[in-house]
Design a protein around this nucleic acid. Structure first.
Length: 288
DNA sequence: GATACGTGGGC
DNA sequence: TGCCCAAGTAT
């Protein structure tokens, strides 16, 4: 079976979107911030916040010098606000342990708060040009379809890194492009629903297409219902505190009309436990 | 390894 | 409309 590299490289040269983090000289800090924001949040929602963030905090040390509260506030509606807290912690760690320079070594990156297998390698590859497999949900779907002939990938597995590594050319610069191209293909062509196979550079060799597009065997785990959930309550509490910041909010004034007071209190407790909220007497505020 | 964790857009 | 999905990580 032919590899994926050559057609991906040729396709990417013409089809890649013009995204901020692909600009020449975007910088490792910008790459790191963009990858944090892109964890589970769509590209189009990230871009304006990313640009504002980098304008406010051009370096890791700039962010580290600000209170976490401001990071959480400026995270706005990107979702999963713990990422804002973790990004702030990572900035402090970069300042304290790496002289303010985003590390290049994958293990050093993995040791930073909020950075896992994906983000560590994405920074090493896209910011520093090193050769590693970068595997996100798009890449896993492309591999599942083109190589395995399955409609959807199985759950993420460490094995995915080795499988992607096997598709990478020896040439370091080309390997980086293949990583980016696999992600890009999954994002705009080989999408989860209604893939655009007519425009796919891998169509001729796609195992899933050759097999007649068999449906996925196992149902993906259904996402928990959001309406009425604790997550929704946490989101509402944090929204209240963000919009009031830097002014603290009296406990009694936080979601007084929430339908389930027990749930509201549980949400506040869990936010405090996560470090996203602090309490002094009966005042709640974002972490200072 | 399963689960919790926001928010909003697309169909 | 309601469900599915989105450049994951920590526990």
């Amino acid at each position: 079976m032919p590899g994926l590299a050559a057609p991906l490289i040729a396709w990417y040269r013409d089809a890649a979107r013009d995204l901020p983090w692909r600009r020449e000289g975007f910088g490792a800090w910008g790459t790191l911030v963009s990858e944090f924001m892109l964890q589970q949040t769509p590209v189009n929602r990230v871009i304006p916040h990313l640009e504002a963030w980098l304008e406010r905090w051009p370096t890791p040390s700039d962010l580290a010098a600000s209170p976490p509260a401001e990071a959480v506030t400026r995270w706005a509606n990107l979702g999963y606000p713990r990422r804002a807290l973790w990004l702030h912690r990572a900035a402090v760690e970069i300042r304290d342990r790496h002289d303010g320079v985003v590390p290049r070594d994958v293990d050093a990156l993995l040791a930073l708060t909020g950075i896992g297998d994906y983000t560590a390698r994405a920074v090493a590859v896209f910011a520093y040009g090193d050769r590693h497999p970068v595997v996100d949900t798009n890449t896993r779907r492309v591999l599942a379809r083109a190589v395995e002939g399955r409609a959807q990938p199985g759950p993420p597995h460490r094995r995915d890194l080795e499988r992607m590594d096997a598709e990478l050319p020896a040439d370091i610069a080309e390997a980086a492009i293949v990583n980016a191209a696999a992600m890009e293909l999954g994002a705009i062509i080989c999408t989860a629903r209604s893939p655009k196979c007519d425009a796919c550079p891998l169509a001729a060799q796609c195992a899933w297409r050759a097999a007649g597009y068999p449906a996925s065997e196992d149902r993906r785990r259904k996402q928990a219902t959001y309406e009425g959930s604790d997550r929704q309550a946490r989101g509402a509490v944090l929204k209240t505190l963000r919009e009031a910041a830097p002014t603290p909010v009296p406990l009694f004034a936080v979601l007084p009309d929430w339908p389930d007071a027990t749930q509201r209190d549980r949400a506040i407790d869990s936010l405090i436990s996560d470090g996203l909220v602090e309490a002094e007497d009966d005042l709640l505020h974002l972490p200072r």
